[in-house]
Amino acid sequence: MKNIKIILGLVFLTISSIGFISCEGDDSGPATVDGPPVINRVTLAINDSTTTVGLRENMYRIYGENLATTKEIYFNDTKSYFNPTLVTNTTILVSIPKETPYFDASDELKVVTSEGVAVIDFPIEQPAPEIDSFSPVAAGAGEIVTIVGSIFEGLESVRFGETEAVIVSSTSTEIQVEVPEGIVQSYIFVETLGGVTQSEQAFGFKFVIYDDALKEGWWVGGWDGSEDFENTEQVKRGDFSIKRIYNGGYSGFQIGNGGAPLPISDYSAVKVSIYGEQNVGNLRFSINALNEQELGVILQVEEGQWNDFEISLDDPALIGENELEVFSQIVIQELSGNSNVIIYIDDLGLI
C-alpha cells in the first residue's frame, strides 16, 4: 500500500509539472500585466511576415508586451474595432478600417491599455485609385475628358491605352485630361502613388461602323471596284481592315445603315483611319448621298502610312445648307482619276 501511494504521488507531481510547463508557454491563459504596453513589431496576419506599413482593410498581428488590457487601437488616429478574444498579453489581431486616412496623416499606430499607451511609426499605404466613370465616352483629339472616382491623390499619369494624356486638372475625386492624338478606342489608365487602375469601360466611338466587321444591318454599295472586309495585309487595330480597290477613276466605296436610325444630334463627327497603298490621290468623303450635290470633305491620304481623319458633322463642306436629322450612309470616292487605286479602311465610327 505504501509503495502504491508513493507511485501515485510521483504521477501527480509529473502531471502537475507538465501542466505548469504547458501553461507557462500559453499566453491565452490569465496574463500578468507588469506595466505600460510595448509594441515590438507588426506582421501581416496572412503569413506573419514583419511589415512597417499597412493597407486599409487588411488584417495584421501586433506583437508586444503588456497588451492583455487593450482598450483601444488607432491607425492614423482612426479607431479600429478589434475582437477582445483575439488579444493576449503579447499579441493582438486587428484589421485596419476602410476609412483610415493615408494622405497627410500622423502615420502612427497607437495601442491604449488600462496601464498606458504605446505608439510606433506605421504609415498607411495609399490604395490603388478607383475609377467610377468618365465623360464623354468618346471625343476627338484635344477635347477634355473628365474622369470621376476616388483616391486620385499623388496622381502620376493618365493614359489612353499606352498613350499618355495631358492632365489639365486633378483633385482627389476628379481628373480632367486632353484626349491624345490618334486615339480610336482604348481603356483609360489612372496611375497614382498607390498603383494603376484600368477603367471598366473602353473610351472610343459612340457608334462603331467598322471594327473588324461591318456593323450588323449595314449594307454595301459602291461602283467600279471591290471590297474585302476581312483583309489582313494592312491593319490599324484588331485583326482585320477593309481593303478597297478602285478599278476605275472616280469610282466609289459606299456603305449604308439598314438598321435603326442614327439621329445626327447624338453625334459630333465621323472618325476613320485610311492607309494609302497604291496610286492614291485625294479622296472625297461624303454622307447621305450628298455627294450628288458636289458636297464632301477632301481627304489627303499619304501613301505608306495610316492617316487618321475626324470629319465634323456640321462642316459646311460636308452638309452644305442641309439640315440633317439622321445619318444614313457614307461614300468615299476616288478623285485622282487613277485606276487600280488601293486603300485600307479601319476604325470607322461616330463620336
Rank of each mutant, 00 (worst) to 15 (best):
T69H: 09
T69Y: 05
T69S: 12
T70P: 07
E72P: 04
Y74W: 04
D77V: 08
D77H: 08
D77F: 03
D77L: 11
K79S: 01
S80P: 04
S80N: 01
Y81R: 11
F82H: 10
P84A: 02
T85L: 11
T85M: 14
L86R: 14
L86S: 15
V87Y: 11
T88F: 15
T90Y: 15
L93R: 15
S95C: 15
S95M: 12
I96M: 14
P97C: 04
T100K: 06
P101C: 06
Y102W: 14
F103S: 15
D104T: 10
A105D: 13
S106E: 05
D107F: 12
E108Q: 13
L109T: 03
L109R: 02
L109Y: 00
K110E: 11
V112N: 09
T113A: 05
T113S: 05
S114M: 10
E115P: 10
E115L: 05
G116S: 05
V117M: 03
A118H: 08
V119D: 01
I120C: 10
I120H: 02
D121P: 14
D121R: 13
F122Q: 06
P123C: 00
I124V: 06
I124G: 02
Q126W: 11
Q126P: 04
P127L: 05
P129Q: 03
E130M: 07
I131K: 02
D132H: 06
P136Y: 00
V137L: 11
A138D: 04
A138S: 09
A139I: 01
I144T: 08
I144D: 06
V145K: 01
T146M: 10
I147C: 14
V148N: 10
G149H: 02
S150R: 09
F152D: 10
L155C: 02
E156T: 12
S157M: 04
R159H: 14
R159F: 12
